[in-house]
Design a protein around this nucleic acid. Structure first.
Lengths: 129, 129
DNA sequence: GAGAGTGTATTACTATCGCTATACACTAAT
DNA sequence: ATTAGTGTATAGCGATAGTAATACACTCTC
């Protein structure tokens, strides 16, 4: 399937770099199952003009996603969503994930949220995604 | 209580800025209850020489913590841990927390972790902290 | 093989970041 | 008042990040 550029939106003055916003949005589409392996991303030119940013900025986002194995480059044709095959042992992936989740927990605590509130929000997010 | 500088450690080549490492460590000590409101942080000079970094780098970390209301400045005497009183309604704090946790969830999913694994890790982290 | 479609290497400019050195303002104790 | 202890304002330096303009290499279709 061809992924429409209308599914993306960037906020240039949000502080978050544009290419990073794009990466996050591609990942969100994938983990939520809205796009599937084999689907094609908009071309860098199409995406760029639709969002009003330079195509090289889009290219940089795509390049990072490719480096992470999230998408594959089909030379001369475009970028397509890759088969999502996590690398490494479960243990190593858990080890990588731990500090990420830990920082979130610290932030939640610092906001004065209870364990229960944090758990409930996780529950919702797991369902929604 | 005087907080000892030995409770801090920085890894200069970790990619994470030194002042940010310090911020994270102070927050971690607070949310885990290892330090209490009223406790005094090491002076910028003491902390700086103990860790081998410039005192202004330490000062920058303290300044950010103060801006967030995490610590208070006692002019001429030092910095002390503030009473942790979250600002704003519960709803607004939940709204602020949501995208933070969401990014963590996306990362976990992208690592191929199951809902169960994510929940279990959260459980552990809540207990440990 | 010409043309229109891909992504990218190169180059360059700007802004911001991260850290540091120095000099200053404040407080507390003697 | 002097001294030794606080944190900080200022300025500057080097490196990196983020974006962009241009020219190039590739693929597919006709």
């Amino acid at each position: 399937m061809q992924i429409s550029p209308t599914r993306f939106a960037v906020h240039p003055s949000s502080g978050v770099p544009i290419y990073r916003q794009l990466i996050e949005q591609v990942l969100a589409l994938i983990v939520s199952g809205q796009v599937k392996p084999g689907d094609m991303l908009p071309s860098v030119r199409e995406m760029g003009s639709a969002l009003g940013v330079n195509m090289m900025t889009v290219s940089k986002a795509y390049a990072r996603l490719e480096a992470d194995g999230v998408v594959e480059r089909a030379r001369g044709r475009g970028m397509l969503i890759a088969e999502q095959t996590p690398q490494g042992s479960v243990a190593s992936r858990l080890a990588e994930f731990q500090p990420v989740l830990e920082q979130a927990v610290i932030r939640g605590r610092q906001l004065g949220l209870s364990d229960r509130q944090i758990k409930e929000m996780l529950q919702e997010l797991l369902k929604a995604n």
